[in-house]
């Protein structure tokens, strides 16, 4: 329990640091400080409202605390171009990013863990000599380039998948849920998910492989052998169970990291998620929206770091159950 609190504090402090960095970063950007939040696209009423809400006429340190207080209430200002609250816009696109990230990560990790364990099993064979460099190459390729190649091959050339977006034009749905469960949505989701999964599978695969190789040399695995257990029991119950620990943690971390990495994938596939929103906001200098999108990504990252810590505590008895005499 003490550990949980400790990890929570740690991650919360890190997030606070990030928001602080962000605050000063956006205010030190070229242009007047006011320009960071107010621009001429807003009407006079809106401008006045923003001035008061963010205390933009007050000293920097006061602005900082007003900014934090606003953040705690989920208040991130108005987007310059959409003229709508940033929070609303973010919450609209967040599900798209979460679905994209989670589904590709699940596919990548299920495949990666199985293939990694299998490759550990096949150690020294020609399969390993071919597969390991091939997997390294997928880790080395820029995500968006994998996306471009798949897009060209499977969408433009073969015509199996739509070339971008999250839904076909002209379709209407009664609710967001209905939309996300529709065949059309899944059809649009498939190619970005495939791309991301292809990029992401390398980490769990290589991690699982090297963990398995390491664990198979542990004394307790030899002991399991001495006990006459079946090979299956030795590999699954003892070796894989131990080798999985870091992979599970990596999964949670992967959710946070890949939300940030989605920036390019979402752009390639015109997928309406947080990453693409960030890119658009930055390119049109929509500061409030860019700041909000960035913060949202940073928040997911911090949250998932915390979840990874928790998982580690839960899964490894050496951490969760202290030493006793």
């Amino acid at each position: 329990m003490r550990l949980v609190v400790e990890r929570f504090t740690h991650n919360a402090l890190a997030l606070l640091a990030v928001t602080t960095i962000l605050f000063f970063m956006f205010r030190l950007m070229p242009g007047t400080p006011l320009a960071a939040f107010i621009n001429e696209n807003l009407n006079a009423d809106q401008q006045q409202q923003m001035l008061e809400q963010f205390g933009l006429d007050r000293p920097m340190w006061q602005q900082y605390f007003i900014y934090l207080a606003n953040l705690l209430q989920g208040e991130m200002g108005l987007s310059f171009f959409q003229r709508r609250p940033v929070t609303t816009i973010l919450l609209e696109v967040l599900p798209n990013s979460v679905i994209l990230t989670l589904s590709s990560l699940v596919i990548a990790y299920v495949f990666g863990v199985l293939a990694g364990a299998w490759l550990a099993w096949k150690r020294g064979s020609w399969i390993e000599r071919v597969a390991v460099p091939a997997v390294l190459a997928t880790r080395a390729a820029p995500e968006f380039w994998i996306g471009m190649v798949l897009l060209s091959l499977l969408s433009f050339n073969a015509g199996w998948f739509p070339s971008g977006g999250a839904s076909s034009p002209g379709l209407a749905y009664t609710s967001n849920w209905q939309r996300m469960l529709s065949w059309d949505y899944i059809h649009h989701l498939a190619l970005p998910v495939l791309t991301l999964a292809l990029y992401l599978q390398g980490l769990p695969l290589l991690l699982m492989r090297s963990n398995m190789l390491e664990v198979m040399h542990e004394e307790f695995v030899t002991m399991a052998r001495m006990k006459g257990f079946s090979e299956w029991r030795i590999v699954i119950h003892h070796a894989a169970r131990n080798a999985l620990l870091p992979v599970v943690t990596a999964f949670a971390l992967g959710v946070g990291l890949s939300m940030g990495g989605n920036v390019v994938i979402e752009t390639v596939f015109s997928w309406p998620g947080i990453g693409r929103l960030l890119v658009q906001a930055v390119s049109v200098h929509d500061y409030p929206l860019a700041q909000g999108a960035f913060l949202m990504i940073a928040m997911v990252l911090a949250l998932m770091n915390f979840v990874a810590d928790l998982l580690y505590i839960v899964l490894d008895p050496r951490v969760s159950h202290g030493r006793r005499g």
Binding site: L15, I21, G260, V263, G275, V279, A290, F294
Partner: peptide, 10 residues
């Protein structure tokens, strides 16, 4: 704890 690519982009 800063998200890598978003930070670079911003």
């Amino acid at each position: 704890s800063l998200p890598f690519l978003p930070f670079v982009i911003v």
